[in-house]
Amino acid sequence: MIKAVPKPLEEVLDLVKDFTKVLIVGCDGCVTVCEAGGSKEAKVLASALRLYFTQAGKQAQIDETSLTRQCEKEYLAQLSDKMDAYDAVVSLACGCGVQYMAEMYNNKIIYPGVDTCFLGVNEERGLYAERCQACGRCILAETGGVCPIARCSKRMLNGPCGGSDQGKCEISKDVPCGWELIYERLKTLGQLDRFEKPVDPKDWTTSRDGGPRTIVREDLRI
């Protein structure tokens, strides 16, 4: 799922401090799971903003709501009769949700309330780790189910580099060497022959490098 962290409160305060009617919109999708932007976080942020405005002696209306998902028009449309009542909206969705809301409510000021980080897993509550970079052409079948694009700091396709030390990456002792993980997994699976086969340069056109991406599924579209 998409992983995000709440923006520092002072950053949000700075964005909205000159408004008097602000709506905080949580998203019940990915950002709820990593506790960055769900309905709960929307309530906390709204309360914090109310405290801020009140102590500053400013009359302000700060409300919160949350949508099932902000990356779909149907859910965003649920805000249509509310929007006029606010000067600005803080969306706690990932970057997709913020942009989609801004597309739908073209004249409204929409600010992001979280920093969207990566596609990852929940290792524990409060510990999320990257696993996928959405390169558009999955090679996990060749790499023992461990992605070198997401998990090697140099995104090498023929690793590990000489910086791998005791299973850790040269950039930090807290970062496992992705290629050592691949090697170990291939060994476990009895597929070490794959390890010695040079991998050709990757086609990056389906990744970020190829420009903004679209999926067109004619089998699904009406």
């Binding site: 409160l9 801020y52 102590q55």
Partner: peptide, 9 residues
């Protein structure tokens, strides 16, 4: 506590 510090309470 952190929030209260930042919002001036």
């Amino acid at each position: 506590k952190e929030i209260l510090d930042k919002v001036g309470v």
